[in-house]
Design a protein around this nucleic acid. Structure first.
Length: 553
RNA sequence: GGCUGGGUAGCUCAGUGGUAGAGCAAGCGGCUCAUAAUCGCUAGGUCACAGGUUCGAAUCCUGUCCCAGCUACCA
């Protein structure tokens, strides 16, 4: 296979200090859809997701539970990967920042920044909560007795100074501004880019990249005297401290591409085509990360997509608020495919959006059970009843109104997915086109054509085959187009229509999807229709609401 | 406080100078192939408020009110 395009995308990595909620996973679901789209299109695709395990919170949580930190994260990571498996998320690598190659990558990045003259020794000052560690001023409030931290209001905060290594972020402002100017699409949506431009305008301060008092982390590779902090026996001098978790976390994207162990792989996969991240970490990805890469002499990622937050009645969904969905509850009600669909259809990927259990049920019933599921069901039932098992062929592309409607839709659909406008892409196919197919049934009234045919009208038989052939073709196209979103339903749709499903479970291996999405691309082939079985059982709203978790309050 | 964006039918939103739109929800009617499904019809909403420009503004300008995002080291 000569020179297939390659596509490398990543999600942010999650802190496995607790069970993941749906609001954590929708980013991964969205990225998985984009990854599957590229795999099915025929691109050589690499999809990276994983966990960020060096946070203070994790070490602290393990301590609270009286657990060994490593044992604790191993267990929590399993919870994450189980949830992702249940959601049919198929990364090419699940990276953990505790992986050995990530330690090598992170240390190499520190060395490179140091070699570039961007790392120097300084002091970090800030409020320190004895129970929790350093706290940002924005997280604190002032009382007559001094500064307090919300989680431990009775404890007096201390103003501490810590010796740290700093990264000369300030030196990169002009280069960053120039990069933004030269690559106007590199951060999207545009308003997120503008926020960062405003931030850059205000100027940059250097950032600390080491923590001398922490031990859960990647050993800082450079000693105070500028020599290596590695000892004769290979171990790292604890005096050197650890790499600050943010500096290490970002580096996962290049570790996952082969840096620094496998230069061939790295040359192939880097720069990444897409980082999918949340709006809370925009600055880290579009200012700090590119500066780190510039300092190391590595190309910048091509695009960073910043999605919004899932909210419940205007409040951010979060574990601490308790207003979140357990992904397993959602999967139990809607299935993995249904969960992926309702999540991405109800949630515009470019902004915050309010979701509720009820809105999920409505969306599932309207789009999947009533419109699409029922379309497949009525189409297959009619074809079998009137014409038998053998699948009728669609009309040539220029003749039927459905093929005309389909027209340039795949092109638009592709543009929407590749622009990360996943809700719009779903609306196009599962809103507009499915609706047109249902309208077509009522306009053509196949049951009446069938009666006429039975009554001896020979021409009616041809018409009936054409109408049902077109409807079957519409179902094939919808099922395939929807496969990145609903990977386990797609093969079942095609089976009912008498088609084999040519892709592997992760979307690899089949023919180029865009060719499959051409109207009539299998028109010449014979096939036997399967049995019409409901693909998306309708949910009763009240019953479903009764099972709703925390959100129902 | 500063910067940016926004306030349009019950809900979510589209619409950037020329007779107010879509989807969902609701009501009425049709059809019977289908998962009580589908199809058609039904919204008369001061387009936040007040001025202004214009033959004409939701769409441009000014002011006011309200909302959201950003305004650096919690990860």
């Amino acid at each position: 296979m000569p020179d297939r395009p390659r596509y490398y995308l990543t999600t942010a990595i999650a802190y496995p200090n607790n069970k993941p909620g749906l609001h954590t996973l929708y980013e991964v679901i969205g990225a998985d859809v984009i990854a599957r789209w590229h795999r099915m299109k025929g691109d050589e695709t690499r999809f990276l997701t994983g966990t960020d395990e060096h946070s203070v919170n994790i070490a602290q949580r393990a301590q609270e539970l009286g657990r060994d930190t490593r044992d604790f994260v191993d267990e929590m990571v399993k919870v994450f990967t189980d949830a992702e498996d249940a959601l049919l998320i198929a990364p090419d690598r699940f990276i953990r920042t505790t992986d050995p190659d990530h330690q090598r990558a992170s240390q190499e990045m520190v060395r490179r920044a140091y070699a570039s003259g961007d790392v120097y020794l300084g002091t970090y000052e800030g409020w320190y909560c004895p129970a929790e560690g350093f706290k940002a001023p924005s997280d604190l409030y002032e009382t007559p007795d001094g500064m307090r931290c919300p989680s431990h209001p009775t404890i007096e905060l201390q103003w501490l100074t810590e010796r740290n290594w700093f990264f000369r972020l300030s030196a990169y402002r002009d280069r960053l501004v120039a990069h933004f100017a030269a690559h106007p699409d590199w951060v999207e949506p545009e308003y997120r880019k503008n926020e960062m431009l405003a931030f850059l305008r205000a100027g940059l301060e250097d950032i600390s990249i080491s923590r001398e008092t922490l031990h859960w982390g990647i050993p800082f590779p450079i000693a105070e005297n500028g020599e290596t902090a590695q000892r004769e026996d290979g171990s790292w001098d604890p005096e050197a401290g650890v790499i600050y978790v943010w500096f290490d976390a970002l580096i996962n994207y290049i570790t996952g591409a082969g840096f620094p162990d496998d230069p061939t792989a790295f040359a192939k996969w880097w720069p990444a085509d897409l980082h999918v991240i949340g709006k809370d970490i925009n600055r880290f990805h579009t200012i700090i990360w590119p500066a780190m890469l510039m300092s190391a002499g590595i190309d910048l990622p091509r695009k960073v997509w910043v999605h919004g937050f899932m909210t419940v009645r205007g409040e951010k969904m979060s574990k601490s608020r308790g207003n979140f969905f357990d992904p397993f509850d959602v999967i139990a009600a809607f299935g993995a495919d249904g969960t992926r669909f309702v999540t991405l259809r109800e949630f515009p990927f470019d902004q915050d959006a309010d979701v509720s259990w009820d809105s999920f049920v409505r969306r599932y019933n309207a789009d999947l059970a009533n419109d699409f599921g029922n379309l497949v069901n009525r189409t297959v039932s009619m074809a079998r009843r009137y014409l038998g098992d053998e699948r009728p062929a669609p009309l040539p592309r220029t003749e039927g109104r459905l093929s005309w409607s389909w027209g340039k839709l795949p092109e638009l659909y592709q543009a929407m997915i590749e622009d990360c406008m996943l809700h719009d892409a779903l609306g196009l196919v599962f809103g507009n086109f499915v609706s047109e197919a249902n309208q077509y049934v009522d306009q053509e009234r196949p049951w009446e054509i069938a009666k006429a045919w039975k009554a001896g009208d020979e021409e009616a038989g041809e018409r009936l085959r054409g109408v049902l052939g077109d409807l079957i073709e519409a179902c094939r196209l919808i099922g395939l187009a929807g496969a990145p979103f609903m990977p386990s339903i797609a093969p079942r749709v095609l089976a009912q229509l008498g088609y084999a499903y040519p892709y592997a479970a992760d979307g690899n291996g089949g023919p180029p999807l865009l060719r499959e999405l051409e109207w009539g691309s299998h028109a010449g082939e014979t096939g036997a229709l399967g049995t019409a079985e409901p693909l998306f059982p309708r949910l009763e709203s009240e019953a479903a609401a009764a099972e709703a978790p925390a959100s129902g309050t």
